[in-house]
Structure formats: structure tokens, C-alpha cells
Design a protein around this nucleic acid. Structure first.
Length: 266
DNA sequence: ATCGGTACCTGCACGC
DNA sequence: TGCGTGCAGGTACCGA
């Protein structure tokens, strides 16, 4: 579920609630969602407080008062919520952290997400390319010129650009008028410039609308996003293009669904 | 060394 | 009702 806009929405909601808060009881209900295995998370967190909650790509990074850090990745179905204490445990709840008057909960049915303990020195952006909203167009062009893959797959590669997923890759390519199966290193200068703008536009719009809820995504307060109502191609297979009325197509590219308008995208 | 394919895991929608 | 199939927002790993 969660791509950059969903993760950003969660961080914006959780940050103000947890900044400065002292951790109470910690319950890790499934040890196998923790990396590296064998870390004693409960001991690591005992008595600490939260200095800040930040986003890097799709990672939610918690900085503690002793300069140790960990991050949570939501995978496909992860949910991170802040609720009053004592709410009933939902199925697939893997981590509970109690604060004075609220509880942070990590729930993830498919368990593609998890918790990564970094300590003081572990790199938080291991294997991640640049942030899309800070990426100059020329730098994006340079990175895309270096791969022979199709543009859709390149946009999903977190080492090339970090934070896009299947929804926003498709939406950005539609906005830019580029077919997902075009080769990344064969885009014209103009197309690359349009793509750079489109990525930023679609991410900013999605953040403004609280992200997209396809099925599982919820913000920290349990509410779904709204941007799915404004998707132009993602999961609109067989429906008319909002610009030209042509039927939206779906193709499997690199093992993922790609949605596009065959008339608007070249 | 880059890249495509597959595996990981659960739940849901659909057709029969 | 139940069963089988296909699909889902992500990423790590495996050979070619």
C-alpha cells in the first residue's frame, strides 16, 4: 500500500503526537518482523523518549533521546496507528508501544513490512536513491540515462529514485504522457523534464489528499486517504481516460501491473 | 553487473 | 457453502 505520500501522511500525523513522549511498556508480539534478528527491542527502548519521527523514502524513522534510531517499513499492508490505550488487539498486531495516554500500534497482515533497529550508527538510507521531491530534473535525467530498463521498472527501483511505488509510477507516467514500456535511457530531454515535474506534482497532490487507500492503508488516526478518487490510470483498467475517453489498458511489466492510456501516452 | 523472474504472506473478489 | 484462481500499495534474492 504505502508509497511516499502515505508514509509522509503517517509521519505528519504521528510526529506531533509522539515528539518528546516517554516510552512505557513495549510488546513485540512477533519477533520475526525485527531486523536484525536477536535484538532485544524491549531493552533497547526501555525508559527512552522520542526525539523525532521522520520519513526517508518509505521508511518511518524514530530518533530516540539517546541518538539511537529504528525505522518501520509498512510493506504492502502495514498500518501504524496511535490510539487510546486499551483498545482491543486487532489481528496481525506485531508491535505495541505504550506512551502515557496513547498506544502506538503496528499491524501488518502480509508481513512484508517490519522493524529495523539501526542503533546509533546504522545507516537509515541504506540502498536508497534520492528523495523525489528534492531531486533536480537534470539529476533524474542522468540516473535514467544509466539504465536500459523500461521506465516503469526504473521508477520502481528505489536505488534510482526512492519513494515511488506502483500507484505513483503509473500516475506520474500518465501525467508526463510517457508509456510505461518506453526505455528509460531513450526518453527525450523534453520527456524527462516532463516526468520530473509530473513526479513532483503527483506526489504533492497525493500528500495534500492524505495519500491513496486501495484497501488497507490507514493514517495514524485509522482514516483512509482520499487520493484514490483522483487516480487517472491506476486500477482504472477498462474505464475511459479522463482526458481523451480512450479505454485505459493494463499490462504486466516487470511482474507488476501497469495502467496507461494508449492515446495520451507515447 | 545489470536485469527479469520469483518468492515471501495473507485476504479478498470472483466464477463455478 | 466451498473451492480454486488471480490479484494486491514492496522488496530481497537468485541465476542468466
Amino acid at each position: 500500500m504505502p508509497e511516499l505520500p502515505e508514509v509522509e501522511s503517517v509521519v505528519r500525523a504521528i510526529g506531533p503526537l509522539l515528539r518528546g513522549a516517554v516510552l512505557g511498556k513495549v510488546r513485540l508480539l512477533r519477533a520475526d518482523i525485527l531486523e536484525p534478528p536477536g535484538i532485544d527491542l524491549v531493552t533497547c527502548l526501555a525508559g527512552r523518549s522520542v526525539r523525532s519521527v521522520e520519513r526517508r523514502a518509505k521508511r518511518i524513522i524514530f530518533l530516540l533521546d539517546n541518538d539511537h534510531r529504528f525505522y518501520i517499513h509498512l510493506g504492502m499492508t502495514g498500518q501504524l496507528t496511535v490510539e487510546p490505550p486499551g483498545e482491543p488487539l486487532r489481528k496481525h498486531t506485531h508491535l505495541l508501544i505504550e506512551f502515557a495516554a496513547k498506544t502506538l500500534r503496528f499491524v501488518d497482515a502480509r508481513r512484508f513490512g517490519g522493524i529495523w533497529w539501526l542503533g546509533k550508527d546504522g545507516p537509515a538510507d541504506d540502498g536508497l536513491g534520492p528523495e523525489p521531491l528534492q531531486l533536480p530534473a537534470a539529476e533524474l535525467a542522468h540516473r535514467l540515462a544509466g539504465t536500459r530498463r523500461i521506465i516503469k521498472s526504473a521508477l520502481l527501483d528505489q536505488k534510482i529514485i526512492a519513494g515511488l511505488g506502483n500507484i505513483y509510477a503509473d500516475e506520474a507516467l500518465f501525467l508526463a504522457g510517457i508509456r510505461p514500456q518506453r526505455r528509460a535511457d531513450r526518453l527525450s530531454h523534453e520527456q524527462t523534464m516532463r516526468l520530473s515535474r509530473s513526479i513532483k506534482t503527483v506526489l504533492r497532490q497525493a500528500i495534500a489528499h492524505g495519500g491513496s487507500t486501495v484497501r488497507d492503508y490507514r493514517n495514524a488516526d485509522g482514516k483512509p486517504g482520499e487520493f484514490q478518487k483522483r487516480h487517472r490510470v491506476y486500477q482504472r483498467t477498462g474505464l475511459p481516460c479522463v482526458v481523451c475517453g480512450t479505454v485505459i489498458l493494463r499490462r504486466v511489466l516487470g511482474g507488476r501491473s501497469a495502467h496507461f492510456c494508449p492515446k495520451c501516452q507515447h
